[in-house]
Amino acid sequence: MDILNAIVVLLNFVIIPATAYGAQLALGALGVTLIYGILRFSNFAHGDTMAFGTMIVILCTWGLQAAGVTLGPLPTALLALPVGIALTALLLMGTDRAVYRFYRRQKAKPVVYVIASLGVMFIMNGIVRFIIGVDDQRFDDGERFLISVRRFRDLTGLEEGLGIRTSQAITVVVALIAMVALFWFLNRTRTGKSMRAFSDNEDLALLSGINPERVVMITWLIVAALATTAGTLYGLDKAFKPFTYFQLLLPIFAAAIVGGLGNPVGAILGGFLIAFSEVGVTYAFRKVVGYLGPEGWEPAGMMQLLSTDYKFAVSFTILLIVLLFRPTGIMKGKTI
């Protein structure tokens, strides 16, 4: 039995990666849930919004790197993030003006918005691939590790090492800041309260001192910030590829729905739930079990429930179970 090594392996391969991935999903799901709560439709273009924002950040990062501007040990992308957010906000507000506002005036049914957002998705998809191409892009720089595996082993003398990548640490810190800022905004400021009021009861909100167009614009602005941040963090942690971002739509929607659509706290919980399930189910637990069992009892099999190729099946299954047994999600969001 070697509990310490088992814990280190588990931390290194499951808990830390899942926490980072969960934070990225949570930020994505927050955007989806805000749009659902306030504009009342499922925005299928969200994955590609993230891709667009990240693309701007990447282009800007390359520009900064070429000009010799870096953030030292931190990735330069953090410096480019505000530019990405600003341009994505412009894109989303433009889309709202050109597409969604028309349907809002018609008081269209939610399903019409969903189909419209599908069209927006294809267009954004095309724009991103046209500008940056379909290939993998790497844009992380600065210090790669907060603690590297070897350094951890040297420090502790344990057999197993624990590596924390800078991108993982940054993901968690940035996500935490974004979430705190969002909740402060929604609960403490008048604009945030207007948004909540709009989400609670649109009819009544229209009969109060709330300007609906302004609420909608501010929602898009916040969604742009959340989507770009989520996309950039995911890209820093893994890599940027437009198709991957499109695929992220499934775990993000699963997270938002599991948590309860329209409920921000639920979106965060859902993000981590999906991430931990996905990583937990597709990780080979052979080593962990080997350390926990008596000497020489290490299992011959991989102790892996599903191959990583099937990771999307995890979100899909969770989504199905939730929709069947608790359609309002963990935190009692709106019924779909």
Partner: peptide, 19 residues
């Protein structure tokens, strides 16, 4: 109709326009 997640006081405070 009411803003169900807000308190009664907050409900009233939401009303005046141009804040």
């Amino acid at each position: 109709h009411e803003f169900h997640s807000m308190t009664c006081r907050e409900n009233l405070m939401m009303v005046p326009p141009g804040q």
